[in-house]
Each structure stands twice: as C-alpha cells, then as structure tokens.
Amino acid sequence: MSVLVFTENWDGKFKKLSYELVSYASAIAGMMNRKLTAFTIGRTGEEELKELGRYGADRILSLVNPALEVMDNRAWAKVIADLAEKEGSKVVVFSNNMTGKALAPRVSVRLKAGIASGVSRLPVSTEPFTVYKRAYSGNAFAGVVIKSEVKILSLAQNSYEIIEKPTGAIPETVEVEVDPSLAVTTITETHKQTGKILLTDAEIVVSGGRGMKSADNWAPLVELASLLNGATACSRPVSDEGWRPHEEHTGQTGKIIAPNLYIAVGISGATQHLAGVSSSKYIVAINNDKNAPIFEAAQYGIVGDAMKVLPKLVDAVKTLKK
C-alpha cells in the first residue's frame, strides 16, 4: 500500500531532480500515512541508491533485466505497472521530464489510474484527491480531482524543495521479468554531449533574443552564463535564424524551464516565450524598450542596450568572484 516514486538514473547517477521527487513523494506518503518506495531501472551502485534514503524513501529498489538496457516505453511501463500492482500502490509519482512523459501515460492506462501531470505543489486534499497543475502554458493552474483508486502524478522540475529525512533504507536489487516481445526499440545512433550543464537542470539561465542582433554578438552572454555556472538559452526566432542551436529554444514550443534565475536579454516577452519561462523564481529583463512586456514578468530590469550592459555585468560578476 506504499506510495511509489520512479527515480530515473543517468548513467547510474541521480541528480537534484531525483531528490526533489523523493522529497515530494515522501510528503505525500506522510499525508496518506503510507510508506514510500523509490525505485530505479537499470544499473546503479549501492552508494548512489542509498542516497534516496536520505530524502525519505523507506524502501529502495533497483529493477534489473538485460532487456531493459534500452528504454522501450512499452516494456518499461509494463515493469512499472507490475511493480505498482505488486506493491498495491495507490499513488505513483514520476518526474514531468522527457522520461516521465514517455512512461506515465502508459502506466496510467495499465493501472486505470487518473493522471495529473506537471504538478508543482502537494495535493490540497487526499479525499477527494485534488492537486493543482500547470495549465494554459503557465497562464493558470488547474485543480485536478483524480477519481480513480490509483493516482499518478508527475512533478515539474525545480518546483519542490529537497527535504532531508533519512531512513537508512538498504537498497535491494530485484530481477524483474520482461516479456521480450514487448521490448522492440533499437537504437541505431547516439549523439551526446557530456560535461555541459543541461538547460533543464540549470539553476541559472542567461537567454538571448532577437535584440542580440546577430550570431556574432553572443560572446558576452555566454561568458556571463559560464561565470554564473549557468546555461544559455534563446527565444524562438533566434534558433529559427540559426544564431543558436535548437536545444536552446525556450518557450511554448521549445523547452519549458523553471530555473532560480532567468536573465532575458533582448527578448520582448511574447506570451509564447513566457509560457516556457514564467515558472522561473526570478526573471531579470535587459531590453532597450522600456515598454517591452518582458518587464511585466520580471522582478529586476535594466532599460538599456544589451551590447553595453552585458560587458558591464560580466565585469561586475568577475569583481564579485575575486
């Protein structure tokens, strides 16, 4: 009768979002007087798994089977639904990241469990089970009542505090059964950059828009991001023009991010852009048009020419670091 949380691992490692998830699921387990079981799929070391116990996981499972090496949505969803059934779980929590979006809906159908995706707060009540989720691309929150016996939630990244609650749980490795006819995904090629802060993980993001004027003007923006240990992003026209790579496009049709700090340089603040960044804790706007809508979304603003302001900001951060 546990609450179940799926903590994905990246080459055997967890990251900040994994601990946010466990903290969130642990709080729900608390509300419902249940134990929390956290599980991952695929190889992870004992020490790494133990970390999940620091944030409230009462049981920690590592599900293994060679057929799960490649993420096949159908095969993985079956394994997760089987575990939820075995555990008699009433709530299953995912991240609302790419993997969560791939798996949670399939698990939902298998368990006939209603889903609330993109939640950022705890349920307001568990009887009836009501939880608020992001809707209308950041323009509203919808209160969703999940009526099914089993509930599925997926948590927006960087929306819930990590809370320490050590349990001392000892991780268990579980050999699971996989129907080989379900795992049919074959990967033919992989391109992966390592060592770069991912835009979706970054706590600080410095983003440029059409006001940056050309691909050649990006050096001070990139420098500012790197001095702040942040990632770089851009508005859609910038990636459409090819000034910056497509992975950096944020907004309704690009990446949806929620960093602690979003610095928007030469971005007008169109609703479609804000849809992807409005959950940022702080927004700084740098724009030479004092009437640009971005200032309505920002907490700090500089009305000025980006080309003049950026180098000064870079200097100010360098001075701070000294």
Partner: peptide
C-alpha cells in the same frame, strides 16, 4: 497548449 497534459499520445499507444 491548453491542458498541458502530455498524456494522450502515450495513452493511445497503451
């Protein structure tokens, strides 16, 4: 872009 559910496609497949 209204309900931001990210669920219908995955559910159809299941």
């Amino acid at each position: 872009s209204d309900f931001n559910g990210s669920a219908v496609g995955g559910m159809i497949s299941e």
